[in-house]
Amino acid sequence: MAFFQTSGVLKVRRIYTHEDLNKEVRSIAGYYIPEEEKRLNYNGREVLYVIGHAAIDNSCCGVGGCRYALIPGYVVAWKNKTDETGKPVSEVETIVDEDSKTELAGILKEKETITQIEFW
């Protein structure tokens, strides 16, 4: 993680690992399946988001699930490296500005069939 300061807003860059899609990731409480990695043009920048779904079928204490969008952030470098296991990684800048988050959440709610939006 790297921090740098631009015009008073703290920006955080993070590495996003491109895992296998459509593969179940299991926990004791349930599982999730990332389905698609998508990129969206927003304010002249490219936003990476992942669409997937989750089932919470064995949690203490309830049953649920969702179809979600995870938004790692603005793409800074797309699949420019690989990690130690050979998986491609991208560099992203997390989205911290509340107005942008609200606007992006609105866009994605209209565009995608999802019930949960989570920003990195």
Binding site: I56, S59, C61, G62, V63, G64, G65, C66, T115, Q116
Partner: peptide, 10 residues
């Protein structure tokens, strides 16, 4: 905000 509790407006 709880995804597990049943609500008519989750």
């Amino acid at each position: 905000g709880d995804m597990l509790a049943f609500s008519m407006n989750p």
